[in-house]
Amino acid sequence: MPDPTPARFTRTHEWARPEGEEAVVGISDHAQAQLGDVIFLDLPEVGARVQAGERFGTVESVKAASDLYAPVGGSVVAVNPRAATAPELVNQDPMGDGWLIRVAVEGAWPADLLDAAGYDQWVASQAG
């Protein structure tokens, strides 16, 4: 089933998908493939505030720890409980069941987020 509303991407490989006044946030398929098996997620607690472009957590694989940067600003209204206990969901379904946090968006969405095609082009331009 196609997404009702498309996700928008950061150049640091996170995505955010609008759902009403909120945004669901995760990492891209490309990012999970680069990381390899995700073993641990360090995510903010419900109620924490995140700022667009600022670090909000960490995703860890066996041999790497990568910072997560918020695509949009606001307050965290939910943290994916399943991903916290089964981080492999981020590998299996990064754009779906492997979402990370849900944010009540404050202010406008940043203008420099990319659509899916733009993000793919960006990734291709960074390779090699």
Partner: peptide, 12 residues
């Protein structure tokens, strides 16, 4: 849990 350690996390 090697992501705690210097060879991966360096200054953090």
């Amino acid at each position: 849990l090697q992501t705690r350690e210097q060879h991966i996390r360096r200054e953090r």
